[in-house]
Computed example of a mutant assay.
Amino acid sequence: MRTVEAPQIRTWDFPRGIASIAVMAAFAAEHGVPADRVLAGSGLAPAALSEPDRQVPAATELVVVRTLVRELAHVPALGVEVGRRYRLSTFGIFGFACVTSPTVREAISLALRYYQLGYGFCIPIVETGDDGMLARVRLDAAPADVARFLVERDIVAMHRVMVDLLGHELAIGRIEFDFPAGDSAERLHEIFGVRPEFGRTQTVFTLDPASLAETLPQANAQTWSLCVAQCADLVQRRTARTGITAQVRALILPGGDTAGIPTPPTFEVVARELGTSPRTLRRRLAEAGTGFRALVDEVRCTLAEEMLTGTPLSVDDIALRLGYAEATPFIHAFKRWNGTTPSAYRRERAH
Rank of each mutant, 00 (worst) to 15 (best):
V228R: 15
I108H: 05
Y119C: 05
L49Q: 02
F27A: 03
R174M: 12
V161A: 09
T266I: 06
D140Q: 06
N220Y: 08
A22K: 09
P196K: 00
A327C: 03
P342M: 04
M158Q: 09
T290V: 09
D297C: 04
V296P: 01
L112V: 07
Q8D: 10
I155H: 05
V4E: 00
W12S: 05
R87E: 12
G275A: 13
L117D: 02
I123K: 07
C122F: 09
A185R: 00
P217T: 01
D131Q: 12
E268P: 01
Y119K: 03
T67G: 13
P7V: 04
P15M: 04
L226G: 12
A250G: 12
P180Q: 04
I123R: 13
P278N: 10
V82N: 03
L308D: 00
V75E: 14
A135D: 01
L150W: 01
Y115K: 10
F179R: 04
T223M: 09
G323W: 09
C231K: 06
P264I: 02
L303E: 04
G243M: 10
V33Q: 00
I175F: 04
A325F: 11
V33C: 07
M1P: 12
A219G: 14
V161P: 00
R105H: 14
F91E: 11
Q230V: 11
T239C: 09
T263G: 11
T100E: 03
P342F: 05
P52T: 00
R70S: 13
T258W: 10
R70E: 15
D178R: 09
E5G: 07
F121E: 00
E305Y: 02
T309P: 03
H189N: 11
L281M: 08
T206M: 13
P52H: 00
A73G: 15
L188W: 07
C122L: 08
G79W: 00
R105V: 03
F198Y: 15
A210E: 12
T90P: 08
G256P: 06
F94S: 09
S109Y: 03
P52L: 02
Q230C: 03
E127R: 03
T103L: 01
A157W: 08
V23I: 13
E106H: 14
I191W: 07
P143Q: 08
A73P: 04
A48E: 13
L251V: 08
D140R: 08
R238Q: 15
S314E: 08
H332D: 13
R238G: 15
R279L: 10
R283V: 10
R195E: 13
A35D: 14
L112E: 06
H168P: 08
V146F: 06
T203F: 14
L226P: 02
Q236E: 14
T328Q: 10
Q116T: 12
T3P: 07
D178V: 05
R113L: 08
L150Q: 01
G43F: 14
G256Y: 15
R349W: 10
P342R: 05
A19C: 04
A29S: 13
V38L: 13
S89N: 07
G95W: 02
E51F: 14
